[in-house]
């Protein structure tokens, strides 16, 4: 996708957001109309106006450069999927089990093939986290629905 096109998508989204934001203040309580309501209208106007100016600048600009969101498509989307699965696993199985699965799997899928290094670094990180966060600092880590 060209830079110009992505810019238009974001800027049009901002304009729509500004319009909706401005209209939403009509539902604010009477007491807020001249204070926070006014503030939100000020933000909506600023966002809308600035986005319109940028759309005008882009319209005049001849920029055909493409936007590259990733260099390695496979690794990029693998990491996103793994992070989403990690988040879901944390909700169900808690932090320790999820992390014990996430670390070695991600290391392997990110291209690291030395099993010994994967096992040792995953174990080391998990141990470090357990000792630092739970034992020393007593930060509560998620236990998940099943074990919570």
């Amino acid at each position: 996708m060209t830079r110009k096109m992505t810019d238009y998508i974001i800027l049009i989204f901002c304009v729509i957001l500004a319009v909706l934001l401005h209209r939403s203040t009509a539902n604010y309580a009477e007491i807020s109309q001249n204070s926070t309501g006014e503030y939100v209208r000020f933000l909506a106007l600023s966002l809308g106006l600035l986005s319109a100016i940028q759309i005008f600048i882009n319209f005049k600009k001849n920029d055909n450069t493409t936007v590259e969101f990733y260099r390695d498509k496979k690794r990029f989307f693998t990491l996103i999927i793994l992070l989403v699965i990690y988040g879901l696993l944390i909700s169900f199985f808690g932090f320790i089990i999820s992390t014990a699965l996430f670390l070695p799997l991600t290391m392997y899928l990110m291209g690291h093939r030395e099993i010994k290094v994967i096992v040792l670094s995953s174990g080391g990180l998990l141990l470090f986290l357990q000792v630092l966060f739970v034992t020393i600092l007593q930060v509560p880590l998620p236990k998940g629905i099943i074990f919570g």
Binding site: L83, I90, T99, F102, M110, F133
Partner: peptide, 20 residues
């Protein structure tokens, strides 16, 4: 450090940081 090790390690700390 290979990114294969760095990415999961930093992601893990980021998730702990966001949760905690």
């Amino acid at each position: 450090t290979p990114t294969g090790i760095l990415i999961p390690a930093v992601s893990m700390f980021a998730i702990v940081g966001a949760y905690a």
